[in-house]
Amino acid sequence: MIDRQWGVPTSLGSRIPLSSLIQTLAVAEYLSFRHAGNMLGIAQSSISRRIKLLEEELGILLFERSTRGVRLTEAGRRFVEGVAAGIDQLDHAVKTAGAFACGDLGRIRIGVHALAPGSFLDGLLAGYREAHPQVIIEIAEGTAHDSIHQLRTRELDIAFVAGAPDLPDCHTRRIWHEPLFAALPANHALVDRSGVTWADLAGETFLVRNGGTGPQAYEYIIQRLAGRWPAGPSILRCDVERNTLMQMIAQGFGVSIAGRATALINMAGVAFRPFYDEPEPVPFSAVWSPYNQSATLRNLLHLAGRLGRSRQGRAIL
């Protein structure tokens, strides 16, 4: 057909109401205008008239009518097969779009400082995967600085970092807290105590990683031990993974600090003792871009907030 205004071919299918196609499928299934009308809640005469108009528009006889009912013509059968396939594709498209819109399909890219068994992050990701099994989860481990840079360049959807950073171009929300522990060689003199103070560790050599929460741990140690060493804190930065750092502690290279998630891990030769003089647990925050409207992100934030409140409630009790 030709569009009279523009003089270009137009699609006949685009001008056929979807309701006409659905009614045609119903008549083809029941081979009865009356039964199709009862199923759709539409008067028999209305369906008969609508399909008659469709046949005139198409220039095709879809159904042969008789006193015994109706039956599909060969052209009608081919038409119905094509319409049924198209309706199935449309239904799939609608359902798929709906799943993406509500966050049941898609992917989410998460930046973490570490992922330890039994930690808050471990439980959060397990809960998210259970609730949204068809969402692809991509995890990148790195420093807070790296993760926030990746957020700004849209390489990550969300990052979980130690502390409560003040970032004017990002949204931040405190999600959970962890008490701080000293990581000591198992044969260290302080291991006999149930806890330690920062003054107890004055003069010790501290080991921190270059990656993960290492830069934040470095700044934290500087703040806590400023003025306690004549020549300043002795801090050795190591370009190693967490397990290697813990092995260095076990061999007596020095001590370090760690959150509760790390202290939960059974590491041979390393003992963890809480700090008596830490004023409050270390906060951990979610950071994300205000321009990210992803439903997968929204669902993760909702679950993280719910689990964080639940964990805080248990701690109070």
Rank of each mutant, 00 (worst) to 15 (best):
residue 266 N to M: 07
residue 106 G to H: 08
residue 51 I to V: 14
residue 50 R to V: 05
residue 255 V to G: 02
residue 138 E to C: 05
residue 102 C to T: 15
residue 98 G to L: 10
residue 200 D to F: 15
residue 81 E to Y: 11
residue 299 N to V: 10
residue 207 L to M: 03
residue 218 Y to M: 12
residue 95 K to C: 01
residue 111 G to N: 01
residue 196 V to D: 01
residue 230 P to F: 08
residue 247 Q to K: 11
residue 237 R to I: 01
residue 103 G to S: 03
residue 186 A to E: 11
residue 261 A to M: 04
residue 154 R to F: 11
residue 62 L to G: 00
residue 68 R to V: 01
residue 166 D to Q: 13
residue 261 A to V: 01
residue 155 E to W: 11
residue 202 A to Y: 09
residue 7 G to S: 05
residue 185 P to D: 00
residue 96 T to Y: 07
residue 173 R to S: 11
residue 289 S to W: 11
residue 127 G to E: 11
residue 305 G to L: 00
residue 121 L to W: 01
residue 233 P to D: 01
residue 173 R to Y: 00
residue 296 T to P: 04
residue 167 L to I: 12
residue 267 M to Y: 07
residue 254 G to S: 06
residue 224 R to I: 00
residue 193 R to Y: 10
residue 63 F to P: 03
residue 193 R to A: 12
residue 186 A to D: 09
residue 208 V to P: 05
residue 89 Q to D: 09
residue 251 Q to A: 13
residue 125 L to M: 15
residue 206 F to L: 09
residue 17 P to N: 06
residue 26 A to G: 02
residue 229 W to Q: 05
residue 155 E to I: 07
residue 27 V to T: 02
residue 147 S to W: 01
residue 137 I to E: 13
residue 113 H to R: 10
residue 46 S to N: 11
residue 107 R to P: 00
residue 211 G to H: 12
residue 129 R to E: 07
residue 220 Y to N: 03
residue 305 G to S: 02
residue 193 R to H: 14
residue 48 S to V: 04
residue 22 I to G: 00
residue 192 D to K: 14
residue 310 S to P: 00
residue 266 N to C: 05
residue 242 R to S: 08
residue 273 R to T: 00
residue 273 R to C: 02
residue 24 T to E: 02
residue 59 G to E: 04
residue 119 S to V: 07
residue 217 A to C: 10
residue 160 F to Y: 15
residue 49 R to M: 13
residue 289 S to P: 02
residue 219 E to N: 09
residue 52 K to N: 06
residue 226 A to Y: 09
residue 53 L to G: 03
residue 102 C to K: 14
residue 60 I to L: 15
residue 269 G to K: 12
residue 172 T to F: 13
residue 123 G to M: 07
residue 250 A to T: 05
residue 153 T to N: 07
residue 197 T to A: 06
residue 197 T to S: 14
residue 173 R to C: 05
residue 92 H to F: 14
residue 172 T to D: 03
residue 99 A to V: 09
residue 117 P to E: 13
residue 259 G to H: 03
residue 161 V to M: 08
residue 59 G to Y: 13
residue 235 I to W: 08
residue 272 F to D: 00
residue 252 G to W: 00
residue 142 G to M: 11
residue 3 D to Q: 08
residue 204 E to Y: 05
residue 177 H to T: 13
residue 45 S to R: 08
residue 294 S to Y: 05
residue 69 G to K: 11
residue 286 A to G: 08
residue 55 E to R: 13
residue 44 Q to P: 01
residue 143 T to P: 07
residue 268 A to N: 10
residue 4 R to L: 15
residue 163 G to M: 09
residue 130 E to H: 12
residue 73 T to F: 13
residue 311 R to G: 01
residue 157 D to R: 11
residue 252 G to D: 00
residue 38 N to V: 02
residue 267 M to V: 15
residue 156 L to D: 02
residue 66 S to M: 06
residue 280 E to H: 12
residue 181 F to I: 03
residue 16 I to R: 07
residue 290 P to D: 00
residue 160 F to V: 11
residue 18 L to H: 09
residue 258 A to R: 02
residue 201 L to E: 03
residue 89 Q to N: 07
residue 242 R to V: 15
residue 8 V to G: 00
residue 179 P to Q: 04
residue 27 V to M: 05
residue 125 L to V: 13
residue 80 V to H: 09
residue 110 I to E: 00
residue 21 L to I: 14
residue 46 S to Y: 11
residue 253 F to W: 15
residue 112 V to Y: 12
residue 226 A to F: 10
residue 68 R to L: 04
residue 140 A to Q: 10
residue 223 Q to I: 04
residue 253 F to Q: 09
